[in-house]
């Protein structure tokens, strides 16, 4: 037992790197995939084509291949600039994960009926204002569970960064194994750490999904609940 505690202490250092890696990746992935998904539904054909091409291409490349390419290929160019393996891994993860999340976001954006776009257009709103004022506010909350699920994927995939010299928790565990020669025990502890990180996010995501599925409208989360005015007698 004492052994396990000492392992956890060692692994904690790596876990912090894992959390940092996942947090930065999540942040940039949300930004980039929002941009990609908007490009994919934009009225400008070339932009749409590029976004769809990017998503299709990126989703057919294994993440590990991208990580290795960035580390061994770009690494030579970026090392003199002081860009570490950590940031190369963030870049590869973001480029890859964004293609998946962008597809999810695109579906979410398309879930708004076309007539809402028309209603905005009939007021004279342009594309950008329609997106900002009418479309995004309607899908913002609906996008949260899928974003959380994507974060879970990012945390899991961040373990691949151990193969390109990022000293996150899986690499820390592998080093620990080489010292203790107890792979079964150490990797089990590692698995438990991942569970501890991911299960709460999964629970929140599922709870939210159920709330949204149960018809908690956007209005409820935007503003304090209104009394059911429809029940009042007509003025």
């Amino acid at each position: 037992m004492r052994e396990v505690i000492s392992w956890v202490a060692i692994l904690a250092g790596g876990l912090i790197v894992t959390i940092k890696l996942s947090a930065f990746t999540t942040l940039f992935t949300i930004a980039f995939s929002s941009l990609l998904s908007l490009c994919a539904i934009s009225p400008w054909r070339p932009l749409r084509f590029l976004a769809v091409l990017y998503n299709d291409l990126m989703r057919s490349i294994p993440l590990l291949a991208l990580l290795i390419f960035f580390y061994y290929g770009l690494g030579r160019l970026t090392a003199p600039l002081g860009i570490s393996a950590f940031w190369l891994a963030v870049a590869a993860l973001v480029l890859n994960e964004s293609a998946y999340l962008a597809e999810v976001y695109r579906g979410t954006l398309l879930s708004v009926p076309a007539t809402q776009w028309e209603a905005a257009a009939s007021l004279g709103l342009g594309w950008a204002s329609t997106v900002r004022l009418v479309i995004l506010p309607q899908v913002f909350v609906a996008g949260v569970p899928s974003t959380l699920n994507n974060t879970i994927g990012i945390i899991k995939n961040s373990s691949l960064a151990s193969l390109v010299a990022v000293n996150e928790v899986t690499l820390t565990a592998t080093i620990l194994v080489s010292e203790t020669f107890q792979p079964m025990q150490v990797y089990l502890v590692l698995a438990v750490l991942y569970l501890a990180l991911i299960v709460p996010i999964g629970l929140v995501s599922r709870r939210l999904e159920r709330l949204l599925g149960a018809g908690i409208g956007i209005g409820d989360l935007h503003e304090p609940a209104e009394p059911r005015l429809a029940a009042l007698p007509e003025a």
Binding site: S159, P183, Y187, A191, Y194, G202
Partner: peptide, 23 residues
């Protein structure tokens, strides 16, 4: 199912390859 969804494939792979190997 929750466990399998929460643990990275790489860690499962290490458990099966190195872990089982060690026992």
């Amino acid at each position: 199912v929750i466990g399998l969804r929460s643990v990275p494939q790489l860690v499962l792979l290490y458990l099966l390859y190195f872990g089982l190997g060690a026992v």
